[in-house]
Simulated assay, not measured.
Amino acid sequence: MKLGINLLCLTDFVTEDHLPVLRRLKALGYDGIEIPILSGEPDHYAWLGRQLAAIGLERCATAIVPTPDVSPIAADTETRARGRAHLNWALDCAIALGAQSLGGPMHAPIGHFTGSGPTESELNYGAEAHRDLAQRAENNGLFISLEPLNRFETYFLNTTTQCRNYALRVDHPAFRIMYDTFHANIEDGNQVAAFQTVAPHVGIVHVSENDRGIPGRGHIDFANIFKAIRASGYAGWLTLEAFGAGLPGIVAATRVWRPLFPDHETLFSESASFIRQTWAVAE
C-alpha cells in the first residue's frame, strides 16, 4: 500500500508557496501527492514534478469536466471535440508532472443534469473518448482512474455496478476506476460488496469520510472496507480525500460551506495514522 493525499484539501492550484506543506507531508509519512489539474499549463506541472521528486514524493493527478461546453459525452460533435481536447490537455499536464495516474470525474460536467440517467449514446461517446485517452496514457506510462460521483453531483456514473460495466465497455488495460468511499457510502448499500463488484478494475482508492472530513471521525466502516480491499489483492494507492471550506475552484461542486477539520496539521497527521493503522490490522 502507498499512502497518498489529494491536495484539494489545501488548494486547487499548487505553487511554490505550498512547498513547505509538501515537505511536511513527506515527513508525516505520505508516499505521494494527488495533484489537482484544474488550470495551468504543462510547463508549470513539469516544474512541480521536479520539486516533488526532490522532496521524495510520488505523483498522481486528478481532473474534471468543468462545464457542459467541454463535455466529451455531448450530442454535438464540436462540443465533444472540445471535450476531448480538454481531456488531452489534462493528460499533457499529468505527463509533464510525472504522474502515475490521471483520475477524477473526467466523464461529465459536475453539477450538470439532463433529467435522466446516461443514454446509450452518451455511454458510447464517453467510452470512445476514454479508450483513446487510456491508449495515450499507456503510451506515456500512465493509467486512467475514472471516478464515479454520487447522484447529486452527476448522472453519468454513480454506482460500482455502473463502473464495472463501463470499464468493460471501455475495455482497455490502462483504463481503471477510482473507488471513493464517500460516494460509495451514498450510492451503494454495502461497501464491502460494492468494492468486490468493481475490484478487478480499481486503480486508486480514495479514503474519504461520510462528511469529507477526517477519516475515522465519521460513520464509514473503514475496517471492513480495508479488509475487502486487502482480500482482493489490491496494494496500490490509498489516497486521503478531504475538503477545506470555501475553495473557490471547487466549492460549487463539493458544497463544502463549513470547516470539516480543525486545521491542516490535524487533518494530515491524524489521517495518516488512521489509514496506516487501519490498513495494518485489516487482515
Rank of each mutant, 00 (worst) to 15 (best):
T154E: 08
G203F: 10
L7S: 07
I33R: 01
Q51M: 14
E265Y: 04
A223D: 14
E265N: 04
E147V: 01
L52A: 06
I275R: 02
D76Y: 05
A231W: 07
H112L: 03
T67M: 10
S101H: 07
F175A: 06
A74S: 09
K227P: 00
W89V: 01
I204H: 06
G111I: 08
L157N: 02
A223K: 11
N185I: 09
I186N: 07
L146V: 13
I186F: 10
F268E: 02
V205W: 05
V205S: 02
N190A: 13
H107C: 06
A194V: 11
S269P: 00
Q191D: 14
T62I: 14
D180R: 04
A46S: 14
H172S: 04
E241L: 11
G29P: 03
G126L: 01
D43Y: 07
L28R: 08
A53S: 15
I5E: 02
T254E: 15
G117Y: 03
L25H: 06
D17M: 09
N158E: 07
L22Q: 05
L87C: 09
L91T: 04
A99H: 01
T254M: 14
S232Y: 12
A94W: 01
T278E: 13
L57A: 06
F175D: 06
G32V: 06
R24A: 08
A228F: 08
R59K: 13
E120G: 00
H172W: 03
A134W: 07
V251E: 15
V65I: 15
A280W: 01
T77W: 10
A167P: 10
S145P: 04
A184Y: 01
S232G: 11
H264V: 04
F274A: 09
R131N: 08
L157C: 02
I204A: 01
Q196G: 15
T159D: 09
Q51G: 03
A245Y: 12
L87G: 05
G29E: 08
G56M: 11
P105N: 01
T266E: 10
P148C: 05
I229T: 05
D12I: 03
R258D: 14
